[in-house]
Write a protein that binds this DNA or RNA. Structure first.
Lengths: 338, 338
DNA sequence: CTGAAAGCGCTTACAG
DNA sequence: CTGAAAGCGCTTACAG
């Protein structure tokens, strides 16, 4: 396991380092005979080209960095898995940037690009993690980047997501079609763009149906199960309880159901509960959770594909690309009680 | 955003590149005055040292690679999150190697070390992803590495995990204490070391209690919910049904419960169900799942800590380190029916 | 406290 | 089809 370099291989094979390099990067340019000779040496000594040397020279690290709030969230994990596959088969490795929602960490990971440690960014949050010069167009200041799932408020960024407004609207439309009129919403944190979009869809649907908005029915959660429980308890204390609760993610919906059941309510007979995401466990809670399915695989693969294109130097039109969501009707929603 | 290098900064600040380098790596060696002068220039032009240059020179990439079967599995995700935190605060970045259980991918990611793209390996599977020379000791052929969660059959590897034998045994002991005698086991795939260890614990507990092993009660699953359902259906077809089912992970336990309930059985009155892992959702299924808790955070942080030590050149004693498991008694287990 | 110089391991026009 | 040479951006003994 000595540490042989390209020069050593060249010497052993009686060729120049340039030729050894070509054996890897452009074998067609090397004569069959030389190729075999060099390959034999490489095999014998187990030579592995040092990527750092190549990276320094080509100014390409071969890495991309994925910046996500929390890998523990099944939505993120599903997306990351797809990204990893796509990156791998294109010869890229992915650096995991789990930020726990902290802006400084988002910046830390985005900085990997300016330090040459990564060639592009997959960004799953709603801030641009750079200091940008407002006098210049964003586009020319940005490294190769795709913003997934979340929404950055700029037309100059390549974005991939579900249409959260439409998705939330269709969820509420469905509840309305079941006769519900008092429909509560448990949102995510209000600095999360996708949550605000879902809220927009919720309000839009109610307005269109001529149902007045009631701010008491609009609670801010933080996307964890416990927060669903808390909000459910607040909702039950209301003089006029909701007959349906739309949660902006499945975890909170699971919390809501758990709390309602603990209090002796029957879901969906007394109160309907609806989630968002369609995580794997949504099917397996009792009753099974009606929710909005997000195509995690497709989101991930589209993101990496668009980033890879940029990395190849192709032009990728900035702007949003919507992927289809799907309403999954299951057991947690039902007709509004009389 | 021009691409200035260390030489440019040196020129602008009227110092040598060596001094600029020291401003980052050894500021104590630089006089206050020079330090400020250089820092000012760095700030003004927004200089970011190129990591590839440094890496090539120091032969340290600053990356570690985490090799895991599936990031979508909550157990892995929890561990990875802890790893990421530890790595980050030590100045390392983590490359995500999601292998989908494929040996070739394990090797691909392990190879990043021989290519200088990573300095160490966190390995969460039960194969050594290198060609090793059986004549030499493993120890001297291995890069800095920690084997987490899974078990590689060698005393020369640093390993961190729960004692799966003891954990499974204590789970079964508990079921036995509830009066169960026909206890089924739904294992993981038989090439997974931790699954085999759990099986060992299961068998040990039964033997100690003088209960004869019944191979009909021992089914191989593959750790997904659907596989729990399949196995449950096989178990129900048995002339002598089990009164308790121990699943080697929570996902399969969730599948088992779902299937039993669909068939009209009451958990735990008719049949008790026990899981392993204590994923977040274990608390929230109905009934809540009795299971063996694994300390994901601690597993992850211990792994990264031990790797970091090796990376610093400290000697880490090879061998296994056990982290404490904990039986979580919840609603899915109860007294054996008469 | 500071600088000149060598070199980490590659790749790539360029010339032949 | 092949090689000599320059250089990517750093760091680090060494000397002063």
């Amino acid at each position: 396991m000595a540490n042989l370099g390209i020069k050593d291989i060249a010497a052993l094979a009686n060729v120049s380092p340039a030729t050894v390099s070509r054996v890897f990067s452009a074998p067609d340019m090397v004569s069959k005979k030389t190729l075999n000779k060099v390959k034999k040496v490489i095999d014998e000594v187990g030579y592995r080209p040092n990527r750092m040397g190549a990276s320094l020279r080509t100014r390409k690290s071969g890495n991309i960095v994925a910046i996500i709030p929390d890998i523990t969230n099944p939505v993120n994990a599903g997306i990351i898995r797809a990204i990893e596959q796509g990156a791998q088969s294109a010869g890229y490795s992915v650096l995991l940037g789990d930020t726990q929602g902290l802006e400084e960490r988002e910046q830390h990971y985005a900085d990997l690009v300016s330090h040459g440690q990564a060639d592009g960014i997959l960004l799953f949050c709603s801030r641009i993690p750079f200091k940008t010069d407002p006098n210049k167009s964003l586009l020319e200041q940005l490294p190769p980047m795709v913003n997934g799932n979340e929404r950055i408020d700029s037309d100059e960024v390549v974005q991939v997501a579900v249409d959260n407004v439409a998705a939330a609207k269709s969820a509420i439309d469905y509840l309305i079609s079941l006769g519900h009129k008092r429909i509560a919403a448990i949102t995510g944190p209000d600095d999360i763009a996708s949550s605000n979009e879902r809220l927009e869809g919720y309000q839009l649907a109610l307005k269109e149906a001529g149902i007045e908005l009631d701010s008491a029915l609009q609670l801010e959660g933080d996307y964890v199960v416990e927060s669903g429980m808390d909000c459910a308890s607040q909702l039950l204390l209301l003089p006029q309880r909701p007959t349906a609760i739309f949660c902006f993610n499945d975890d909170m919906a699971i919390g809501v159901m758990k709390f309602l059941q603990k209090q002796g309510f029957v879901v969906p007979d007394d109160i309907s509960v609806m989630g968002f995401d369609d995580i794997n466990y949504a099917k397996y809670v009792t009753p099974s959770l009606t929710t909005v399915h997000q195509p995690l695989n497709e989101i991930g693969s589209t993101c990496i594909e668009l980033l890879l294109k940029q990395l190849k130097g192709q032009v990728v039109e900035p702007g949003r690309r919507y992927l289809p969501f799907e309403l999954k009707l299951r057991g947690s929603t039902g007709k509004a009680p009389k």
